[in-house]
Simulated assay, not measured.
Amino acid sequence: MKLRRDIFSFRNRVVVIIVGVVLGGISLLYTNNMAQQLKEKEQHDVALWAHAMERVNREVLSGKLQVQDPLVEDLISNNNNIPFIITNQNLEVVNYSHLIPEEIIDHPDKLRRQIEKFTEENTPRTVRFWWRPDNNYYHIIFYGKSALLKSLYYFPYIQLLVIAAFITLGFIAFRSSKHDEQNRVWIGLAKETAHQLGTPTSSLLGWIEYLRAQNVDQTAVDEMQKDLAHLMKIVDRFSKIGSETPLTPANINEVVGESVMYFRKRIPRNVTLEYNGLAIAPVQANINSALFEWVVENLMKNSLDALQGHGTIDVKISSDDRNVMIDVRDTGKGIPKSNWKRIFEPGFTTKTRGWGLGLSLSRRIVEEYHQGKIFVVDSEIGKGTTIRVLLKRTFAG
């Protein structure tokens, strides 16, 4: 069922992408077509303007035009949306549009570049004065694109950027809501697990008290008591997931040491667990002890799985003026460098059994609850791995 949902989800995403591309392509083609039509209209307007200029000059020079023709005057004077420069045959400016800054007209190099730009945009129009005695005299109209035409050319790209931005924001919002929903499910599951474990742990406490009153090996009962205490810690950890978790100053040596001591008695004989924390000066950090012990146990369990029954786990505490470092090193099979970050992703695992949640949960506890860092310091195939937890150090007041 999950596979089918994933397939449908993938198909839906593909359909949305295809529809978006098609709509974007249609918009681009339609707007480009409109821009081409507007360009042709502007070229036609300039051609009419050139003809009007020829007619006015011809009739003025011949004495036929005593009163300006309103239509011709309108064609000449109202062409104010297209930038242009008019020169004579020697490229000396005789007129120019108010859209052209004077600094361009007054600067020969800038003027030449502007004329070249207009020539690339539109073919210049020539206004000939063939009726003059010097029939080689003529004007050249260099003109460019109007602001409206430029806007039409750029509009599809702006539109596509806006659509892409909306799609991206929608995708982020969807991912965020889905992530929040998954978080609520996991938090609810964790709290329900803690609630369900409450009854059997209470019952086990009663059975241990009963066994203490019987003629049985009390050493075994003590170990059962330790396991039950550890189980109650696990119940407490599950109950804290999703809740506001207070952090208090704690001796990191002791907190890590308790996990190491418990773990040491429950590992295979061919595995050695070393710890330096009890032999160095105490270091302190703000932590939630119950959750932080969970991190240490997850790291040691991960190392134990990597050892496959024999080898060494070395838990080492060190510090500087600002930070406390807890390193868990093993002599196991190692991790490829391409997976150094992936091992902290939910669901990632190289084991045939397991959900791939231990290290991802550890990262969440360290980074979100304790504002620390957890990362692979070093790993080499066949030689082992070192994972470090970094916390901000505090000092006793």
Rank of each mutant, 00 (worst) to 15 (best):
P249F: 03
A306I: 02
R212V: 09
T193D: 07
K301L: 06
L75P: 01
E121H: 08
G63D: 13
T331H: 10
I140F: 00
D314V: 04
F395S: 06
I167Y: 14
P101V: 12
G257Y: 00
I387Y: 00
N32E: 11
D69R: 03
M34K: 13
E42C: 03
A47S: 15
N215A: 14
T349C: 10
F348A: 03
I317M: 12
T219I: 10
D327G: 05
P70V: 06
E380A: 11
I343L: 03
S362F: 02
E59G: 07
E258V: 00
L197Q: 08
K351I: 04
V46H: 02
F8C: 05
Y137G: 06
V366A: 05
R4Y: 10
L29G: 08
Q284I: 09
I365N: 04
S360I: 07
K178F: 08
P282K: 06
E92K: 03
I241H: 01
R175P: 01
I313F: 05
E192Y: 10
N12S: 13
L149F: 03
S338N: 07
G63R: 11
K316G: 00
T193I: 02
I85H: 00
K392D: 14
V377I: 09
K341E: 15
V296M: 03
L273P: 01
V162T: 14
I82C: 02
I343T: 01
G188N: 14
V389G: 02
R363H: 11
E254F: 04
V15W: 04
E368C: 05
L197N: 08
E254N: 07
V16F: 14
L111S: 06
K191F: 06
K233R: 07
V221T: 03
K191A: 10
I167T: 14
